[in-house]
């Protein structure tokens, strides 16, 4: 094709209901096919599209539509982000810890009519807090393995953590493990035989610290 497509040439006037007219105006293609072609990044190249001035105009229109869509989304997101925070508060006010309470972990009391328990959720919570208090550590998932419902049965704890790059990982893991043993002993009668710490994700740290500085 040697013919240049004028930038201001109007997109073919088609009837939204008539596929034949649409294809006739787009070198045998449909808008849907062209849209999929754009989604694929125009690969593999299809000469029957690339060499058709009508298709080129339609593709340009689709690209413009996409740009406007993005700026509309951007505008809407900005507007939503500027709202006051009350809606966040009302969501948080309407959810309950009960959904993630987990199992009941018995606490010892001599009376036969006493049933004292700490929930698995509460223990996971204090394990998280313990890790978060250490510098440059963020605790992810915490899991208690074993029968926590029966006093004296040995259990293990598994913890995912993010440790920031400048930290000495074995040292941090050891400090975290000791702190977690102490806090479990403080709040439960569990017999913990091991705390397995998995360092899961270091890559987020540079970004996180950079953004953290922006906030301060």
């Amino acid at each position: 094709m040697t013919e240049l497509t004028p930038a201001d040439r109007r997109f073919v006037e088609f009837d939204v209901d008539d596929t034949d007219r649409e294809q006739a105006g787009l070198n045998g293609h449909t808008i849907e096919q062209l849209s999929d072609y754009l989604d694929r990044g125009r690969v593999p190249a299809d000469p029957s599209i690339d060499d058709s001035p009508d298709c080129e105009i339609a593709l340009r229109g689709l690209e413009r539509l996409r740009r406007v869509q993005l700026s509309l989304l951007d505008r809407d997101l900005k507007r939503e982000s500027l709202r006051d925070d009350n809606w966040v508060a009302s969501i948080l006010d309407n959810i309950t810890l009960e959904a993630h309470a987990g199992r009941d972990i018995p606490l010892i009391h001599p009376s036969p009519t006493a049933r004292l328990v700490v929930t698995e959720g509460a223990v996971r919570g204090i394990l998280r807090e313990t890790g978060d208090k250490l510098q440059n550590v963020l605790v992810g998932r915490c899991a208690l393995f074993g029968d926590v419902g029966v006093p004296g049965v040995p259990i293990t704890i598994s913890v995912d953590v993010t440790v920031f790059p400048e930290e000495n990982i074995p040292l941090v893991a050891d400090r975290l493990r000791q702190a977690m043993y102490a806090v479990v002993a403080q709040h439960t009668n569990l017999v913990v035989t091991a705390i397995d710490i998995t360092v899961t994700d270091l890559s987020i740290a540079p970004q996180a610290s950079a953004q953290g500085q922006e906030h301060t």
Binding site: E98, D104, T113, R115, V117, V118, T119, A122, G125, E129
Partner: peptide, 12 residues
């Protein structure tokens, strides 16, 4: 008294 149950649902 049948039972007195105390549940610690949150710490800290």
């Amino acid at each position: 008294v049948a039972q007195i149950e105390v549940i610690v649902a949150r710490i800290g």
